[in-house]
Design a protein around this nucleic acid. Structure first.
Lengths: 373, 373
DNA sequence: CTAATTAATTTGTTCATATAAGTTATTCTA
DNA sequence: TAGAATAACTTATATGAACAAATTAATTAG
């Protein structure tokens, strides 16, 4: 798959799909491409030749190579009257994503739509691949959970091209600030606030916070954590905040917590606020190994109120995430955008506004009064 | 028209049109063509490459270049662009299904296929609806996890119609006996056997077994449970076997176990073999409520070796299910069936046989020696 | 200023060479 | 005799070089 000519081919294709090359615009000459990619002319010709054969480009001897106009052609490759909606999420198989997807899938399916699922595994390259597919083939709309939403996105041009091609999209869980899309989210800041406030109201003052930092939910939940401290006039110990990237989620938080628990006992925090339930379950093992009792020795609170709150001997206090409801609302909005497109403008204003779900605290047995109180 | 590669091209085309080259017949190799026409390899490749692009020939690396079958050409070209595969499972969002689906989805996606997901929620009516959709709209193939595979299926005719319409399908996890389809399964009987044998070898003789009875995996796992008893000369107490339907999975096993544990202490079983990890996690709570220690007071073993083995304070001994690997293998087989259909008959025999995965025992801390041994 | 010529650029065709990777048939081995 | 190892063959990818043919821009001649 990673042949040189394929790399060149994909690079050119990307520039067509993200709108850098407009129809009938001249693209770089063969010698320029040779320099750009450091390959031989033959390799360039292979790449361009393939794209010509597939209708992406056309060549004119002596003049150059040009971007083809695919606007009419798309009709042919489209699936006719088939109704397709794509759902792109970071994961389809882990944690609460299945629930979110089910909510959307059930609704769309009932309305007679085909649902195609793609998971990016939190990788921008995959996200780009899927956006290319959606731009190339016929889709009526896309429900997207952004990949690494806290980091600036290299595929912004693809989203803009979706707008140009009049393909509606909705973002769920998070959104890219640059785009200001229609979005269905949870009020993560308030969720973080509720989480921490719950612990503070129980009497905790030394609260460890674990937050992911490469999606936009993490920083927002952390903001809520900080706000709750300020609102209750409690000083924040900077060393009580641990952040981690998605790639490190299985190691860093666990080893960091271990280090803290093995540190001087006096400085040991009495409670932990976690980015989500998945992390909470992982941290439980660290606490168990040290034979600390939950919640007597230490309180811990999750986020998302997933099925994981219920699988362990300690039932987790958590913050309710709408999950399948979020998926369903996204699906409903999507379909009203689709029908809007067809009925050209007649808009139910209600349907075209973003939704922010209100988080709720769900108290179970993992949180309690601090020990020395 | 005077170019060398064009002369070669026309010559080959003539031989196809006058019947010298029949569909799927190997044409002269590149080196032979070089000699025949006295041109360079590159020129030959240009000529052949053009014919491949226009659907006259197809190449197979290592094997040769072959004459394409253009009889159904109209269908093939319009169909070739779309590349749709459907995956129908009972659930898309629960338990190990997401992993299975991910395995298939990742592979199919890489190969440029659209993946459409449908979940029947274990309901035959939904299954029928989706099969209708697949029969009416264009799909290249279907990967199906049967709904209620132990019960006779009212949609058999739809499956037969798939065969009639030459739409390949593969069944995963289980299959309907009446159809004898290509299937990718786990050796459930052996899995059940390993489960129970492990407990017997630890010294347990009074082993409670919980098995689902409306899919075909349940009875097979139960058969393994029985076989293990016989193989080790241990009597089976009929009241030690609990079966349940999918609809009752949240209630019946839990209440049945509660009743047994609250019964006379002497007759209390020392070990439990469970249909899957999901059930095991549910039963853990019943055991915890009675303050019994696992594995000292009672051993418990799961099935599927899912992520659930690791979420509780007790790490579950379980039986390994291939999960994402199963999905990937199913996807690979599916695509070789699809390409077989197009190249009409030329079969890689290896690709067209069912696969039965071998289960493995994974020992963790939920099983141990019986108390009074 | 216009038209013809020329130079530079760009794609089109062809050759020679080399290594990689997959398939098939044969040989060798246990 | 079954299965592993190998050799021979086939297509796949890649580089370098050369000349042809068409277009475009710049220059020159009228």
């Amino acid at each position: 798959m990673q042949t040189k000519y394929n790399i060149v081919k994909q690079a050119i294709k990307s520039k067509i799909l993200d709108g850098t090359f407009q129809p009938h615009q001249k693209i770089s000459s063969e010698s320029e491409l040779m320099k750009q990619f450091g390959v031989s002319r033959h390799t360039v010709r292979l790449a361009v030749g393939d794209l010509v054969n597939n209708g992406w480009l056309y060549r004119e001897q002596g003049a150059g190579t040009f971007c083809a106009d695919r606007t009419q052609e798309n009709n042919n490759t489209s699936v006719g009257n088939q109704k397709n909606i794509a759902i792109i999420t970071t994961y389809i198989s882990d944690y609460i994503f299945p629930s979110i997807i089910r909510g959307a899938e059930t609704y769309l399916s009932q309305q007679g739509y085909h649902v195609s699922l793609f998971s990016t595994n939190n990788d921008h390259d995959n996200e780009r691949r899927f956006l290319e597919k959606i731009l190339t083939q016929h889709f009526d709309g896309v429900i997207i959970e952004p990949t690494k939403s806290a980091i600036s996105n290299p595929n912004i041009n693809y989203y803009l091209n979706l707008e140009r091609q009049n393909i509606p999209y909705i973002m769920i869980n998070a959104y890219y600030d640059e785009l200001e899309p229609l979005s269905i989210t949870l009020d993560d800041e308030k969720g973080g606030f509720l989480q921490t406030e719950h612990l503070i109201e129980l009497g905790h003052k030394d609260i460890l916070g674990f937050f992911k930092n490469d999606d936009s939910q993490g920083p927002k939940r952390m903001k809520g954590y900080l706000k709750a401290h300020r609102a209750h006039g409690i000083d924040i110990n900077p060393s009580n905040i641990v952040t981690y990237k998605t790639e490190d989620k299985y190691d860093k938080p666990v080893s960091d917590l271990a280090a803290i628990l093995d540190g001087p006992e006096g400085k040991r925090p009495t409670a932990i606020a976690c980015y989500n339930d998945e992390l909470t379950i992982a941290l439980l093992d660290v606490i168990r190994e040290r034979e600390l009792n939950i919640p007597k020795d230490i309180s811990i609170i999750g986020f998302d109120n997933s099925f994981l709150t219920n699988v362990s001997e300690v039932k987790l206090t958590s913050i309710k995430h709408p999950q399948s409801e979020m998926g369903e609302v996204a699906a409903q909005k999507m379909l009203s955008m689709v029908s809007n497109k067809h009925s050209n403008g007649k808009s139910n204003k209600n349907d075209l506004t973003s939704v922010v779900f209100d988080p709720e605290l769900v108290v179970r047995s993992s949180t309690g009064l601090p020990k020395n109180k």
